[in-house]
Amino acid sequence: MTKFSSLSRQYWPTVALFAFLLACWQLAVSLGGIREYLLPSPLAVWNALWHSEIGWTQHLWATTLEIIGAFVLAAVVGVALGVAIAWSPLIANALVPFLVFVNTLPKVAIAPLFLIWMGYGIFPNMLMGALIGFFPVVINTAVGLSQVEADMLDLGRVFNAPKWKIFAKIRIPNALPYILSALKITATAAVVGAIVGEFVASQKGLGYVITTTQSSMNTAVAFAALIWISIVGLLLYGAVVLLAQLWAPWAEGVD
């Protein structure tokens, strides 16, 4: 109960502001005579959220799959590249300039190429999300692996510990908070990538729903799709935050 009351004390301004904005919105639409295709009322959006004709389930499923796939791909590839960079200066010298180049490319501009190479489908959109989200993971992994006190490494040398053991026991756990912090960025980037991919080429997904509403002027559905997207994004972000607290509870404030 005390936990609930402290939570409510912390978040009541958020809820109040949200309710106030919703009320303003509803009033503006119903009293101000704004046309429905320009700005649908909150009620219309609420109805659209459960509109069965849209077939939300399949779109939600497709986009969620893309986002999770993009996230996992970015995390795995990002960590692997980060470890490779920290492992060998040779790999670092070969890889880093190339990665910086890839990162400076506007990924959205590559999306049409993905369509040519891979056609329609979930995978190209996953790849787009991964491409946008992997870079911070690489950098944070490499940085986290190298931020170990020199004295600690001396300790490893005194006992003649092999390099992999130093990585497994010291460097990788040390990098964990850095990696988890990057994954929070990746969680949002994965959402952006998946939607961008769907905008360019798709037959399914919440981004696809939004593009179809452009021609039908069904703005309420576009708003509903936005809400679904943000729910998926928030859930993923929340999962990463939770994971960080579980996995690296010692790392308070490495954000």
């Binding site: 600690m152 300790l155 005194v158 040390n174 010692w250």
Partner: peptide, 18 residues
Amino acid sequence: QPIPDIGMVFQAPILLKW
């Protein structure tokens, strides 16, 4: 080369936080 039969203590405790 580094010899194993020593114990080292530094100015900072450098304990592994986790």
